[in-house]
Design a binder for these strands. Structure first.
Lengths: 339, 339
DNA sequence: TTAGCACCCGAAAACGTTTTCGTTTTTTAT
DNA sequence: ATAAAAAACGAAAACGTTTTCGGGTGCTAA
């Protein structure tokens, strides 16, 4: 059972390969009659063009690459969902790689994608990435590039993000508006930009509302997970007895904290209010349900691919494309962990 | 800045393309001297083979396809994690598609992967898939195929699964051993095999321990999500007042049920014990923490790719490969939702 | 009749590699 | 010195497409 090729069809019909190819692509210099004949024969033999040959000839793969820090992560998997849905609509396939928050791996994977000659690359940076030479290389090779969520301001490319600072501001303000005055912050590691931005938003909200910023109320959660939340909450209880609100960098951290308070018999939100971040869907399923800030992962994925697609199209057409930065809307979601 | 090709190197060195190619691949019929020269020049020019040409020539892409029902799902994202990690080790890239539990989409995506000429395919079926002709086609084209978790017994291929029936049996037995006698089951839809198997395991456990099976204690959760769990729990409270245990098909359903009981002031596990399934990590974070059965997603992903890799290798070498079925171990994890 | 003009068609190059097989060069043995 | 053997190299085909460009028809108008 040999592969069906253009040659096959051409021989069956006694015409040239050229004509067959053109007929299938509706070139104007092929008569209606031959077009019909060719198409019929192609259907009969179940002809499928050999993508390898097409790729080689066209110098493109109709495949794009995606690098994210973690696959097993609600926010990123939502992004992935948005991306692959949109990509499929446009006839593109997506190769997914995971940097595991390692800058070194990230570099390797960029090289891998380049060597696979993907038509475009989407990336959310590892927390530790500071050297961005691998991304500059992508730009130099003129491979369309879009960054999302965890970006670097130093790279000239399109970006799809939220305003972490503003979102954190809104979250903190919500706590203040509901009556909290001693508000702690469970932040992420020192380096990642969104960890910094959320911290700054928190600080600014305090200052704007006449609350003195107290650095002893800020706890660092290195890995930003459930255990970190538990640890921070326990430490907080040791250090302070007057805190009436917590803004956690992420829902998971907030949930860790809640579980500690539940266990200790500390009432949420009566004794202490808690805000999360991301609106991970489980936030509505815990007790008490978690107030949080919505971070639109699916939307972000959609927008990311759409932007990449425009850029790839511009490259094919040889038209100019100026990078855009799109800031997606966030919104406070009030539930039962705040008053 | 033109692409560097073998031709380029050959011209620079005044030798033939053939020799350059062979030198880079350490063919024995190239002298050490020329090999060194060629390699040096290649490094200097940053030569990277054109994969499109390699693919065409070799008739393979070093790319595999993966189809799963949902990306945003803890279990499946764990599987994805295991797969892409393992694939990268072997130099393969993974194209991920999502069937959205639609049999029609699944079929389309198989066609897509075939037309992209991936070297192998891994799939977990959509719940509604009964017609398996698209998978037969994969077999006919002799594309290596491995199914995992949600499989079809009608397809002759390697399979990586857990024993759902046995796992459900163990979960139910755990409830019985802890003193429960009226045990309800929140099951999934009627069709998917794992929904059936878990139900059968539940039933068998009852019968083996002298408890009469009562079909009025079985509730169907069509979409197997949090809301389903809530609905089923509420219905259960209306229908019965003597139930002392629930085995839910999935952690999320169990969590939905717990949230209802928490709200109603029904004590878990004192008044009613609850078992989940999957050991989704959030299971340890809710109150009370959820007893469940561990379903090793990461392991499953690893094993799935490894098996596919063996099959692909066998195909290249022209050696025979007989499909294997690997059943991964599951274990009951006792937490605070059971006595 | 002949130039001009649609209208069709196909030869051939190009994309960049891999590999077979024949040829040339060098080395070894006689 | 010469034949045989071994080592090194290269021509060319092949993978299957797309696209340019140069014809060859047959028709119309002068």
């Amino acid at each position: 059972m040999k592969e069906v090729t253009l040659k096959q069809i051409a021989e069956n019909l006694g015409i040239s390969i050229t004509t067959v190819s053109k007929a299938l692509k509706n070139y104007p210099d092929v008569s209606k009659k031959t077009k019909a004949l060719v198409k019929e024969e192609a259907k009969k033999l179940h002809y499928k063009p050999n993508v390898f040959a097409v790729n080689l000839r066209m110098q493109r793969s109709k495949t794009v690459g995606l690098i994210i820090p973690e696959v097993v992560h609600h926010f990123f998997s939502s992004v992935v969902n948005g991306i692959i849905e949109q990509a499929e609509k446009k006839g593109y396939l997506v190769i997914i790689l995971q940097s595991n928050e390692s800058s070194k791996l990230e570099k390797k994977q960029i090289d891998l994608l380049i060597s696979k000659r993907v038509d475009g690359i989407m990336i959310s940076l590892a927390s530790t990435t500071t050297d961005i030479s691998h991304l500059q290389e992508v730009k130099e090779l003129e491979i369309p590039l879009v960054m999302f969520d965890k970006i670097s301001k130093l790279v000239q490319c399109s970006k799809i993000i939220i305003n972490d600072r503003e979102a954190a501001y809104k979250a903190t303000k919500h706590l203040i508006d509901s009556g909290c005055r001693r508000i702690a912050h469970f932040r992420g590691a020192l380096l990642p930009q969104n960890s910094i931005d959320r911290f700054l938003g928190y600080k600014k909200a305090l200052e704007d509302h006449g609350i003195v910023y107290d650095s002893s109320l800020v706890y660092i959660c290195e890995r930003v997970d459930y255990e970190d939340g538990i640890a921070a909450a326990k430490q907080l209880l040791k250090d302070h007895d007057d805190v009436d609100g917590i803004f956690a960098i992420t829902d998971l951290v907030a949930i860790g904290a809640i579980s500690v308070f539940n266990e200790m018999g500390i009432k949420v939100p009566q004794d202490i209010s808690i805000m999360g971040f991301s609106n991970w869907f489980i936030a509505s399923a815990i007790t008490p349900s978690l107030s949080t800030v919505n971070q639109p992962g699916y939307e972000m994925g959609k927008k990311t691919f759409k932007t990449l697609h425009k850029e790839m199209k511009a490259k094919r057409d040889g038209t100019e494309f100026t990078p855009v930065t799109k800031v997606l809307k966030t919104a406070v979601i009030k539930r039962n962990s705040t008053k």
